[in-house]
């Protein structure tokens, strides 16, 4: 298995040489294999990705339609094997009453993952429900606790933050990679705004989160993600003078390219 230090070494080298870290979200063995062939730095495997590569909408992950951890255990092994020597991290639902954190960490380690992330996250439910979950000990704090337990075992940790406070807590707790996430709901950004304005606001939000985190640790590895950053151009925007040093793809890396590619190929065959 690839060790945490080796992965971190690669990531720091990448940043030092002025390159961008690229974390690829993979929900199928095929995606992981392709990403490995392309030489991505890290492959992130999580229930949302698995669902979206079944053709279901990524948001399905938030609904009570499956057990996120079981999905990862059932399908994650195949994906890790297809990733070859590219390091893989497993997205764990930290609050799951059926899969205690200790057991999940044992299992993903055995499956060949070199690290973990807090995916899925309570933050996806929005502040009202997420705050309630936090009150019951099932919110972000439970996720942070899972990441700390993983770090104690020497696993690589990637923590997702929805706001400045969460980004700071991740950095304070020594989480190796901190992902800053911007979700673009219609009520939040799009109401009466052009796509350019929405992108600019999302970039500002990324910048706020990054700057707060960098104040605590100037060496923090910060990466960006979110639906306003859906292609190379918009992802690049999320990195310009925000303080982030990398980008994590989701649908942008595997679902959209697969759909486009298959549709185009079918059309060509249909035109024979």
């Amino acid at each position: 298995m690839i060790k945490r230090d080796a992965v971190l070494g690669t990531l720091y080298d990448c940043v030092d040489s002025g390159n961008t870290i690229f974390v690829f979200g993979a929900g199928s063995g095929l995606s992981a294999r392709a990403a490995h062939m392309a030489g991505v730095h890290l492959i992130s495997v999580y229930s949302t990705a698995i669902l979206r590569m079944k053709g279901l909408n990524s948001l399905t992950c938030a609904l009570p339609v499956a057990n996120a951890n079981q999905l990862l255990l059932d399908e994650g092994g195949v994906i890790v094997r297809q990733a070859g020597c590219t390091p893989c991290i497993a997205g764990i639902a930290a609050q799951d009453p059926f899969h205690p954190v200790g057991e999940m960490l044992d299992k993903v380690e055995k499956m060949g993952f070199c690290g973990v992330s807090n995916e899925p996250f309570a933050g996806i439910y929005g502040s009202w429900f997420a705050d309630l979950l936090e009150e019951y000990g099932m919110g972000f704090s439970a996720e942070l606790d899972m990441l700390r337990q993983a770090a104690e075992r020497g696993l690589l940790t990637m923590g997702w933050a929805f706001d400045e406070e969460q980004a700071c807590r991740l950095v304070e707790n020594g989480i190796d990679i901190v992902g800053v996430m911007v979700m673009d709901g219609p009520g939040k950004y799009s109401a009466g705004k052009t796509e350019e304005e929405r992108l600019r606001e999302a970039v500002l939000e990324v910048r706020k989160m990054c700057q707060a985190a960098l104040k605590i640790n100037p060496q923090a590895i910060l990466i960006t993600h979110g639906d306003p950053f859906y292609d190379v151009k918009t992802a690049t925007e999320s990195l310009i003078s925000t303080g982030a040093v990398g980008y994590a793809s989701g649908s942008s890396g595997e679902r959209l390219p697969s759909m486009d590619g298959i549709v185009k190929t079918c059309q060509e065959f249909l035109n024979m």
């Binding site: 933050g123 439910y125 929005g126 429900f129 979700m183 709901g185 219609p186 939040k188």
Partner: peptide
């Protein structure tokens, strides 16, 4: 009742 993110979407 997923007010917040899921409600905005």
């Amino acid at each position: 009742d997923f007010l917040g993110f899921l409600q905005t979407t």
